[in-house]
Design a protein around this nucleic acid. Structure first.
Lengths: 194, 194
DNA sequence: TTGTCCATGTAAAAAGTTACATGATTCG
DNA sequence: CGAATCATGTAACTTTTTACATGGACAA
């Protein structure tokens, strides 16, 4: 029995709340959900075929445009069971931050360019926070279900909170680092502060 | 001219401060630096060969054990130039969090298992913070160089700060979520709080 | 009529993981 | 004398990215 990879579970997780087409799944895997996990459509279509073969999803043809059939996928009972088993299995996460790789090497860049780079990152986090704020407003409209820990909505909201926390932390870090750089460039400021 | 990928720059970044063997590079790519970017030795050796071909690193054979030559790699002037150019070039980061994928789906799991899962994550963050604290103590021993933004040490310290901030934020989020779950399970606590 | 969105796929290449393989030294 | 560490590599496989390919509907 072919085992399911993370991408498979990501797809099953999205199908667990409602049926979707491959295209819709691909859309969802972009920002802001894509800031948690991303995938291209070229990865999703073959994955859906695999999940169908192993009986974890099922599809029905619906009317749609284009040269091929439009298929709406739904999760099966077996799929739901597989997803639940994966949900609280041991997790080994590999963190990858290109940003930190860059920062580690910023001493090779002129102070001006370094500051510009960090200001761009700062702006990037602000942009994210604005998107998150809009998402949070959406959740607020749902009312009580958001605070009910047996609902899928509650955990979707929890991931949003995580994203907001992360962006806020990254923003604060940018500010701290920019401040450190400013102090170093202008020792008078240091004197005035101490 | 074959272009360098992120892994290549990660390697160049480590070689920028001092020469190392492939083995030493692989060691460094484990925790806690590996929490920012990780790579296996099977990826590093071929990468070093590529970087040698393109003239971004150079190696000298040094005495060592085993059936093959032990090589110490150093970055070349061309390598340093390439690295500096990459450092502040536009960045497009793809965030991947298996944890968030799991949390999104925790409503499928029993409340007890969900709480256990989150408590494990909480402990995981605490463990990380302990390792980071030890690393921070190391930096403190270096004295002034840590606060000099023209030094490589300063930016290494900045990435450590980022890691600490991230783990702290994740910890706070775990606490928040666990609290939400506790309130839902035990409505008396809610009454007592309000 | 040109461009964007909907909708599905395949192919090729790059990146990353896991497993295989060798052998010296050093510590318990 | 066995296990861990040092040290280097290759092979097979999986995952992810980028590019190619088709075509309907609808709006500027």
């Amino acid at each position: 029995m072919a085992q399911v990879g993370i991408l498979g579970y990501a797809v099953l997780g999205l199908l667990a709340t409602e049926p979707r087409t491959g295209y819709e799944l691909a859309q969802r895997m972009k920002a802001p959900i894509g800031w948690m996990w991303s995938a291209q459509h070229s990865q999703i279509y073959p994955e859906l075929a695999r999940l169908t073969e192993t009986g974890l999803v099922r599809s029905t043809v619906i009317p749609g445009p284009g040269p091929r059939d439009t298929k709406r996928y739904q999760i099966t009972t077996a799929g739901r069971r597989s997803l639940a088993a994966w949900a609280d299995s041991p997790i080994t996460e590999v963190m990858r931050s290109e940003l930190m790789l860059r920062v580690r090497v910023l001493w090779l860049v002129s102070p001006d360019r370094a500051r510009l780079f960090l200001e761009q990152q700062r702006q990037h986090q602000l942009d994210r926070l604005r998107v998150y704020a809009a998402e949070e407003a959406d959740f607020a409209r749902h009312g009580d279900a958001v605070s009910d820990p047996s609902s899928s909505l509650f955990f979707a909201y929890a991931t949003l909170r995580f994203g907001i926390g992360r962006a806020t932390q990254a923003l604060a870090w940018c500010d701290w680092l920019l401040e450190q750089l400013a102090i170093a460039v202008d020792p008078i400021a240091l004197g005035a502060q101490s």
